[in-house]
Amino acid sequence: MEYVILDAQVGDLSGVLDPTRYLDHLPSMSGDLPPGARAFATDPDHYDFRSRRCVKDLRLQAVRGAGGEEMEIEFQHNCWKHDQDLLIRYAGVSCFIIDSADEDREADLGTVILDEILPHRDGCSHEIACWDGTLTLVSRDLQAIWTETICSSDA
């Protein structure tokens, strides 16, 4: 990640997630993002850890269309925090990399820590850090769709 810090030090506490530098740079670079990426990145709930639409703690559920120009990544809610799942559709994918901490687990990267969307000459880059690895995509644009779900504790 270029701006989001996944292991910040705050006083005596280490391992703190800190998107502050990214959020400080976002207003100056958001105009260079494609419309869908800009809407998702600048959503006030995106980096608000108390928000139900914060990406932190979502679980990577599925990656569809890997290797193609159109891809989807599905994230499952965490019942204690979210009441919606997240589907991200990528159009014009020119790069897709899975960097797994454990090669045996392949695309099972676990829970999302944070993400970062940056302008790119091909549209935008989207890096998604999870506890067990990282997904990185470059695409012409993306569309984030939150969909209602029912937690098993609600049923």
Results as ranks from 00 to 15, higher is better:
residue 114 L to C: 02
residue 105 R to M: 11
residue 93 V to Y: 02
residue 130 C to Q: 12
residue 93 V to T: 05
residue 116 E to M: 01
residue 126 H to F: 07
residue 81 K to Q: 13
residue 107 A to T: 15
residue 110 G to Y: 05
residue 102 D to C: 02
residue 94 S to N: 09
residue 103 E to R: 09
residue 134 T to G: 00
residue 137 L to N: 05
residue 102 D to P: 01
residue 103 E to V: 13
residue 135 L to N: 02
residue 113 I to T: 12
residue 138 V to F: 00
residue 121 R to Q: 13
residue 114 L to D: 12
residue 120 H to V: 11
residue 128 I to N: 01
residue 135 L to Q: 04
residue 84 Q to H: 09
residue 106 E to K: 14
residue 96 F to E: 14
residue 141 D to V: 03
residue 97 I to M: 02
residue 86 L to S: 10
residue 104 D to E: 08
residue 99 D to N: 12
residue 143 Q to F: 00
residue 100 S to D: 06
residue 95 C to F: 04
residue 90 Y to N: 11
residue 100 S to C: 11
residue 81 K to F: 06
residue 100 S to Q: 04
residue 89 R to C: 13
residue 107 A to R: 14
residue 121 R to F: 02
residue 91 A to M: 08
residue 142 L to M: 07
residue 81 K to A: 05
residue 87 L to I: 15
residue 134 T to K: 07
residue 130 C to P: 08
residue 106 E to P: 00
residue 99 D to I: 13
residue 137 L to W: 03
residue 119 P to V: 10
residue 92 G to A: 07
residue 118 L to T: 11
residue 111 T to C: 05
residue 83 D to K: 14
residue 129 A to K: 12
residue 129 A to S: 14
residue 83 D to Y: 12
residue 89 R to V: 15
residue 126 H to S: 11
residue 102 D to K: 08
residue 124 C to N: 14
residue 134 T to P: 00
residue 142 L to W: 04
residue 109 L to S: 03
residue 137 L to I: 10
residue 137 L to Q: 00
residue 112 V to S: 03
residue 115 D to N: 03
residue 81 K to T: 01
residue 94 S to V: 15
residue 132 D to M: 13
residue 80 W to P: 01
residue 135 L to M: 01
residue 128 I to Y: 00
residue 122 D to M: 08
residue 82 H to C: 12
residue 119 P to F: 04
residue 112 V to A: 07
residue 112 V to T: 10
residue 123 G to I: 13
residue 129 A to W: 11
residue 88 I to R: 08
residue 85 D to N: 15
residue 102 D to W: 01
residue 120 H to C: 09
residue 121 R to L: 05
residue 104 D to C: 01
residue 146 W to Q: 04
residue 86 L to M: 11
residue 91 A to W: 06
residue 131 W to A: 09
residue 84 Q to D: 05
residue 100 S to L: 02
